[in-house]
């Protein structure tokens, strides 16, 4: 069987033949062309946002990922208008149950706990389920003395869950604290975009902070800053390179080398 037949049998042929457009330069290619190039546009080199599945394929050793708390789903806990319908639509459009996928696996043979946020589910925003899943992951990692490797991409806290979403920042921070106190490694990998309450909590709490090239990383939104200060934002403001320059990121790593770099760091910290 050739690749086409295998994909056909799996019902994936259409998916891989589906056209995708680079948002940066407008180049149109089959999905498989982008996928085989680590979701980097072959024409202009722009990094496209990755889904959790694509990220796991790229980083985690083949067939080692075991998902945890996979079925946890959000409810409209404060009866926020239109939220129930929004959740339903997000599930349908993203084929995900929530904005983070958690689990265990190996990276370059090193066992670790892994969380991967996915911006295709309500802009990766954090409500109670995202907070709970990441908290449980850190607690499990603390119990088993596992390092945590986390990929962030998020617009911030999910306002449709009101104060509950804000409090998730503190809840996850508690679990990060206990994991760290027990002498475990946490590598945070910041991908485009990582903003708001995620930047102000677990995205910036890693022992090692890696960012993808040109990723938008910041706390306050750019439009809000412009409107409040009336100033023009400097070139490259809140991009990964800007954070590296100001001392808030350890490494900017290109996608093709990311797995190798994470594996080397895990090995170096193994006990």
């Amino acid at each position: 069987m050739n690749v086409k037949e295998v994909l056909g049998n799996l019902g994936l042929l259409e998916y891989f033949a589906e056209k995708r457009t680079c948002k940066k330069c407008g180049a149109e290619e089959n999905y498989s062309v982008f996928k085989n190039n680590n979701m980097i546009c072959p024409s202009c080199g722009a990094y496209m946002r990755m889904t959790a599945d694509e990220r796991i394929d790229l980083i985690v050793d083949k067939d080692t990922f075991i998902e945890t708390n996979a079925s946890m789903e959000s409810k409209n806990i404060i009866a926020f208008p239109e939220y129930t319908a929004k959740l339903k639509k997000a599930k349908k459009d993203s084929s995900l149950k929530e904005a983070v996928v958690c689990g265990t696996g190996t990276i370059g043979g090193q066992k670790c706990a892994i969380f991967v946020m996915d911006s295709s589910f309500m802009m990766g925003s954090m409500g109670t389920v995202v907070g709970e899943k990441i908290t449980r992951l850190f607690e499990m990692a603390t119990e088993n003395n596992l390092p945590v490797v986390g990929f962030t991409t998020s617009g911030g806290a999910r306002m449709q869950e009101g104060i509950y979403s804000l409090m998730q920042m503190a809840k996850v921070s508690g679990a990060v604290h206990r994991h760290s106190e027990a002498g475990n490694l946490y590598i945070a990998v910041l991908t485009d975009p990582t903003t708001g309450g995620i930047t102000a909590s677990f995205a910036m709490q890693g022992d090692i902070t890696i960012a993808e090239p040109k990723a938008l990383i910041g706390f306050a939104g750019q439009r809000v800053i412009e409107q409040t200060t009336g100033e023009k934002l400097p070139k490259g403001f809140q991009r990964a390179e800007f954070l590296l320059e100001h001392g808030f990121v350890d490494i900017i790593e290109e996608r093709g080398r990311l797995k190798y770099t994470i594996a080397r760091l895990l090995e170096l910290h193994s006990r």
């Binding site: 990060v176 102000a200 909590s201 706390f219 200060t229 400097p234 001392g247 808030f248």
Partner: peptide
């Protein structure tokens, strides 16, 4: 928090994140 260019340059997000994790201990 202060929505300003300088506050971002000096790591507003990191400063809040540090407080959350440290205050837990």
């Amino acid at each position: 928090a202060n929505p300003g260019i300088e506050a971002e340059e000096r790591g507003q997000g990191e400063a809040i994140a540090e407080n959350l994790v440290e205050m837990m201990g």
